[in-house]
């Protein structure tokens, strides 16, 4: 169903929004042999029952998508982890928030492609709402060289005077492309 890891990250991000989170952190890291991403939020969190439901591929409660009852986010992550020998960790405290972290072996053939991270950040930064968002992108080469950048929605939005119209989003895209460029070498 999902074509790329960036789609999975976006789904986790949307889950955080749906959980009423006001502060969301997303990280996407690469090392020579692992891909690692995490989404942390201060949304409503899940209790034990909620976690069990979230792990169940048929656990979507049916009100959200009238046409289907299959939630895709977490079960898909689990499945990908199983296929590739990766792992997924979920920490959630009701009323406090949730942190979901996934680590995959970078070279595994069944690992979906990363996808377009510039577009992922655009999607996350311009999703409507008052939430705050911090992004951390990092790549550590085998020789120890580190490339990284951080994006803070509040700072970006202040610099651009809002993230509403396509002119500001166009500039934002150029900004993000300049950040992402060293990673494509």
């Amino acid at each position: 169903m999902h074509a790329a890891l960036s789609d999975v990250v976006f789904d986790l991000f949307q889950n955080s929004i749906e959980a009423g989170a006001m502060n969301i952190g997303v990280s996407f890291w690469e090392t020579a042999d692992e891909i690692h991403f995490s989404v942390t939020d201060d949304g409503r969190g899940m209790d034990f029952e909620g976690l069990k439901r979230a792990e169940d591929p048929f656990g979507s409660d049916g009100t959200k998508h009238p046409g289907r009852r299959v939630g895709l986010g977490i079960p898909f992550l689990r499945q990908t982890a199983e296929q590739t020998g990766g792992r997924v960790e979920i920490d959630s405290v009701p009323g406090k928030g949730t942190r979901i972290e996934a680590v995959f072996p970078a070279a595994h053939l069944d690992l979906p492609p990363e996808g377009n991270l510039v577009l992922l950040w655009l999607q996350c930064l311009t999703f409507g709402g008052d939430y705050q968002l911090k992004i951390h992108r990092m790549c550590r080469e085998s020789d120890g060289r580190v490339e990284e950048y951080r994006i803070d929605k509040a700072e970006i939005s202040e610099a651009l005077g809002g993230l509403e119209d396509t002119n500001t989003v166009g500039l934002l895209r150029e900004f993000l492309e300049s950040m992402e460029e060293p990673f494509n070498k």
Binding site: D7, L72, L122, T166, N167, G170
Partner: peptide, 20 residues
């Protein structure tokens, strides 16, 4: 999610890009 799987992201990208 089903929108994303069916290409919503690409559509979003076109609207943002073309308007700009």
């Amino acid at each position: 999610t089903c929108g994303i799987a069916a290409g919503a992201k690409e559509a979003l990208n076109v609207f943002l890009g073309e308007a700009y």
